Amino acid sequence: MTDKHELRSAARRLRKRLAETDPSAAVRAAGHVDALPAGLTVALYQAMGSELDTDALSVALEAAGRRLCLPVVLQRDAPMIFRAWSPGEPLELDVAGCPAPLPLADAVEPDLILTPLLAFDAFGGRLGQGGGYYDRTFSERPHALRIGFAYAGQAVERLILDAHDIRLHGILTETGYTAFE
């Protein structure tokens, strides 16, 4: 049986290949923004490495009248908070080394949280980087819809989830939006 460390390594290699072979995937995914569930405040992320880029999606969401925010890690073993953000506003690195809004930005509560991932399955399973930031945050915000943002090619048959792994409500890829039961 493959452990999560090996699965993450293989998923990172696959995602890197997908990013290299399909550079327009993020723009195509942003074209499906109208299919996303309702929610006034939407949390995105600033893509790092081969994560599916959110630039086009942020512009499309803002054009659709949605308020945007980004996650901020203030403590390594705590849930993330969210701060209001619009494309072009300055960012700084948070405790985890991720680009985040400045402390002067308003703290907000998202209705929808779009999350990066390494792999997903048709049952809402999500394989993240392994830091637990999103799972801790999801458990603190059960009202927020959890949507993965990924390449369609990151789908796997079935992920084995641990007790602390929290399922997604849906996935947005370059091929469209899919809600999970």
Rank of each mutant, 00 (worst) to 15 (best):
F180C: 12
V42E: 02
I113M: 15
A163M: 10
R146P: 08
P90Y: 02
Q154R: 05
L172Q: 13
S58A: 15
H164K: 11
R66L: 09
T173S: 09
R136L: 10
A150W: 02
A11F: 01
L104K: 11
H32D: 11
L161A: 14
R67F: 05
S139L: 13
V73C: 14
M48N: 06
A122E: 06
D165G: 09
L44K: 00
G132R: 05
A152L: 06
V42S: 04
L145H: 04
E6K: 12
V27S: 11
A25N: 01
G88F: 09
A107Y: 02
A150T: 07
R66T: 06
A150H: 07
S86Y: 01
D162S: 15
A100W: 05
L102I: 06
G130R: 04
A47C: 05
A96Q: 03
V72N: 05
I171Y: 02
V156Q: 00
E92H: 12
L172D: 05
Y177E: 09
W85H: 04
T2C: 04
T173D: 01
A43R: 00
L145I: 13
T173F: 01
R141P: 10
F82V: 11
V156K: 01
S9A: 15
L7Q: 12
F180I: 12
T173A: 03
G148A: 12
H143R: 14
A19T: 08
T21G: 09
E109H: 03
L127C: 07
G31Q: 07
T178E: 12
V156R: 00
F82T: 08
H169Q: 13
L14A: 08
M48G: 14
R13N: 11
T173M: 03
L118W: 01
V73L: 10
Q75T: 15
P37S: 11
H5V: 15
D135Q: 10
M48I: 15
P101G: 08
L18P: 14
L36C: 07
A30N: 04
V108K: 04
A35Y: 00
A107W: 00
Q75L: 12
T178L: 13
L127Q: 02
L118K: 05
A119M: 05
A56H: 12
V72E: 03
I171S: 06
P90G: 08
A10I: 13
Y133R: 08
L70F: 04
A107S: 09
G31T: 14
